[in-house]
């Protein structure tokens, strides 16, 4: 059952994405330095360590390849904190440069992506402080860390909404909006755990909160999303049976 949420289908699409990123790499980097070409399997930790070692001895162009698999994760995490796309993009760029400069302090026992996400979150917090905006989390914390209503929408049956429904823009938009409307403390945990698939420990480390807090916030985030989205999706995606009835 875990596999249903964690793995099915998603891995394939993730590698599709890596594939398209590779095309991009072919254009803008390999044209200059064909010897730096790396295959997409560089994700494994030992390979990651090797690339980092090579960057540290002067092959700085390899940094492009090192971060490519993490771009999406870093951006979405920052976005879950800033909410503004342009700002989140800028913070992502800045965080990547900071990570480059700090690369020697990366220790191999950590996961590179988690380390990168932590740097990005710090950069995001720094920006919010400079702009005189309180980090979103401290505001929500007062508002919703107390007991609230985290009960689901009560339904008596559920028809599976297939992934093909995502071809419809209004369905994607409904999902994005529902996540966007979560209180920031829940949105961040949800983004790391359920969109970017970090485990509880990694999420706790990146957000500097305890594993238990991760679990509580994740539960609430999931319940808030179910409550909002289940009725909405049910109404938006027609039951297939009706289609067959109307044509027979």
């Amino acid at each position: 059952m875990k596999a249903l949420v964690g793995n099915n289908g998603r891995r394939a699409r993730r590698s599709d994405w890596l594939g398209s990123a590779k095309n991009l790499k072919d254009q803008d980097i390999d044209a200059r330095q064909p010897q730096t070409r790396l295959d997409a399997s560089m994700k494994s930790a030992s390979c990651e360590r090797e690339i980092i070692a090579r960057i540290l001895t002067g092959e700085t162009d390899l940094f492009h390849e090192l971060i490519r698999p993490c771009e999406r994760m870093v951006y979405l995490t920052v976005l879950s904190m800033m909410k503004d796309e342009a700002e989140a993009e800028d913070v992502t760029q800045e965080a990547m440069l900071k990570a480059f400069r700090a690369l020697r302090s990366f220790h191999a026992e950590a996961k590179f992506s988690t380390w990168l996400v932590a740097i990005a979150l710090n950069e995001g917090r720094r920006r919010l402080r400079i702009a005189g905006r309180a980090p979103l989390e401290s505001l929500d914390e007062q508002a919703s860390e107390q007991e609230g209503d985290f009960t689901p929408a009560v339904l008596t049956d559920w028809r599976e909404i297939p992934l093909e429904a995502l071809e419809r823009k209004e369905i994607r938009q409904a999902l994005v909006e529902a996540v966007g409307q979560l209180p920031a403390i829940y949105r961040q945990v949800f983004t790391l755990r359920d969109i970017e698939e970090l485990d509880v420990k990694e999420t706790a480390e990146a957000l500097e909160i305890s594993a238990n807090v991760v679990k509580v916030r994740l539960h609430r985030a999931r319940m808030l999303l179910q409550k909002r989205l289940a009725p909405l999706l049910k109404a938006a995606v027609p039951v297939r049976k009706r289609f067959f009835w109307s044509t027979t």
Binding site: E71, R72, M96, V179
Partner: peptide, 29 residues
């Protein structure tokens, strides 16, 4: 429904990167 929603939100099509995001990032790097 909860499980179904998690599968949908986790799909790569749901949260898209801004157009040109990767190009801009690597150009700056």
């Amino acid at each position: 429904s909860t499980r179904n929603i998690l599968v949908l939100t986790a799909d790569e099509r749901t949260f898209e990167l801004p157009v040109g995001f990767s190009e801009r990032l690597h150009a700056r790097l």
